[in-house]
Nucleic acid binder design. Structure first.
Lengths: 342, 342
DNA sequence: GCTTCGAGCCAAATCGTTTTAAATTTTTGT
DNA sequence: ACAAAAATTTAAAACGATTTGGCTCGAAGC
């Protein structure tokens, strides 16, 4: 059923019908109601592609998905989906096999200029991210999930990684730990730098010297968690506490600790960052995992919301949101063992 | 830059330019080459929405994403992305907050009739799935990831869950286990039924009676893995082996076993299904996890491929793929403890 | 009582392509 | 060298909506 035919059946012009359905003011309330009802009854719905052509709007928010199987990603998207349900806006996932961020830049360019999306969400930026520069240059609306240090004005949503890690580290220091190892995220990403800063600042507050041998970087996998933790535990003196970048990392750390015949929460304390996954909960681990916590799903929902605001005309420069992170203490953190204290 | 302007600059008609770029045969090779080169040089790209309007094609494959944070989902999509890279086809994720499958049916209807996608992928079907019936009725192309028992002809891709679980169970029986508990997926889904059948058949082959107290159903979370395993271990006589539905479930099972002071691989054997996640590998678990294994990412890539074939005109009735599942034995399975053997 | 105004509706232009059907040019056969 | 056939190219008609600008008609202003 097309507009023309539908309008004919109603005895109205296509113009009026279109306006009635779009909620324009110059159509009488009575007519609008009739049109709306008949549209449902006769099953008329505007052809989306015609609408897109004439309005220039795409009705979708773009997200680039790399080949790294980011488990966070699904949660974030699920949050977006939650917010977008009923909004008549979809999520368009643009495939890429490029591992390196820089190689992905042209893809963002194509996505922005292709007319397939109205805005994009940029994830895990570097401090000086080419994607941001490009999108700004193109004048294309985007929301940054994370932060960068560029002076290009833009909308962003981030969690306070720095403060989270600073508090986590401070807490370990309070418990008497002095050699605290950190398994951070991929090198070069802003959030990794923020976490690094939080870690260093906490040490500095107590006048404890920073030891580069206690910090590593890498993707959030159980494998790296295990390998890094194993190698840390071979040091003498060995660290008595770990700050882990993710739940998966924490799983690896737990295993490494156990494989050395040590006990998490007694011999070795562990704090990790928890994005709150429905399928893997810090509270259920044994021992339960102390964590800095912030819901990835909530971030996705809010991100979608902010993008909608952006598209509605709210200036990007107004959209800056820094979320606090909870620190939840459970059984995996305890006083530093006596013999290890200085 | 629009077609008209671009054509004018080339001294050709819009028609010829359009044909040249779309690779139609009735344009000379020389002209085609010139057009292609100039398009790159001048940066001309057809307006996607105009193309969509006139061709009726959407250039996207639809996927419905519920609010259950399925960690498999990201891997599957990532596989799709891998195959779709360079194809000029996107993945359109349609949000829903409806938990129940039946409630999602109208969404599939809207998606199919909205013109936003050319085909959809339907996940985790029930044996008699309303979504399949609807899509068939609408004559809309779709690929089923999983299987159903409907007589509606349709394309599908599935892994051989039944055989996988039968072999896993048989192997445990070979090792002398007699009380084998199974933590299956959500009730009602075809794959859960297939796994159930594989489990029962293996028992039947040895003349071992089926005990319903040894089977549970639920989502794939560490929490359920833990809770179910705990409660199984409270039975007397307790099971000596577990077949777990997922890696997350297995994590829970490991914890439950340890929390009872038992040792995985010695006191209790565990086999789980592994979808092959980059961030959580069966081989790295301690003890390493015996698993039935099939790559979710590969399935996503193949699914995208099959959808492409479907859209290219290959009959849906020809597209049936049943993937074998590897059984990989590691340290988590061992002989049944003496005292437990009958 | 005549003009002005606004509410409500409509005809036609527009968005930027693809594709049908026809026109032109080039090649081929004799 | 000429007609017929084949190879290129093109003008114009879709595709299905939104939107500009204009039209009609009754109410309000004076």
């Amino acid at each position: 059923m097309k507009l023309k035919e539908f309008a004919r059946q109603l005895g109205l012009s296509p113009t009026t019908v279109s306006r009635a359905l779009s909620g324009y003011p110059e159509v009488s309330e009575k007519t609008r109601k009739r049109v709306a009802e008949e549209a449902v009854r006769l099953g008329y719905r505007p052809n989306i592609n015609a609408v897109r052509l004439v309005t220039g709007r795409a009705g979708a928010i773009g997200v680039v998905m790399g080949r790294t199987g980011e488990f966070h990603f699904a949660e974030f998207m699920s949050g977006m989906a939650e917010r977008l349900d009923g909004e008549d806006i979809d999520i368009l996932v643009s495939p890429t096999t490029d591992r390196d961020l820089t190689d992905q830049v042209p893809l963002y360019g194509r996505l922005a200029t292709s007319g397939r999306v109205d805005a994009v969400i940029v994830h895990s930026p570097k401090p000086n991210d080419e994607r941001i520069a490009l999108l700004h240059e193109l004048g294309f609306p985007f929301l940054l999930h994370g932060r960068s240090e560029t002076d290009v004005p833009h909308a962003w949503l981030d969690i306070d990684n720095e403060s989270a890690v600073r508090r986590a580290t401070s807490h370990l220091l309070d418990l008497g730990h002095r050699r605290i190892a950190m398994i951070n995220g991929p090198e070069g990403r802003t959030f990794s730098l923020h976490r690094d800063k939080g870690y260093r600042d906490a040490l500095e507050d107590r006048g404890i010297p920073f030891d580069p041998r206690l910090v590593t970087h890498g993707h959030f996998t159980d494998e790296l968690g295990f390998r890094f933790a194993r190698s840390f535990l071979e040091q003498t003196p060995r660290p008595t506490a770990f700050v882990a970048g993710s739940m998966m990392t924490a799983l690896g750390v737990y295993r490494a600790v156990r494989s050395r015949g040590l006990v998490v929460g007694r011999d070795i304390s562990v704090i990790a960052h928890d994005d709150v996954f429905p399928y893997l909960t810090a509270d259920n681990m044994v021992p339960s995992l102390s964590a800095t916590r912030s819901s990835m799903r909530a971030a996705g929902a809010r991100a979608a919301d902010l993008v909608l605001q952006l598209l509605a005309g709210r200036p990007a420069t107004e959209i800056h949101e820094l979320w606090p992170v909870e620190l939840i203490l459970r059984e995996s953190t305890g006083p530093a063992p006596r013999e290890a204290q200085s």
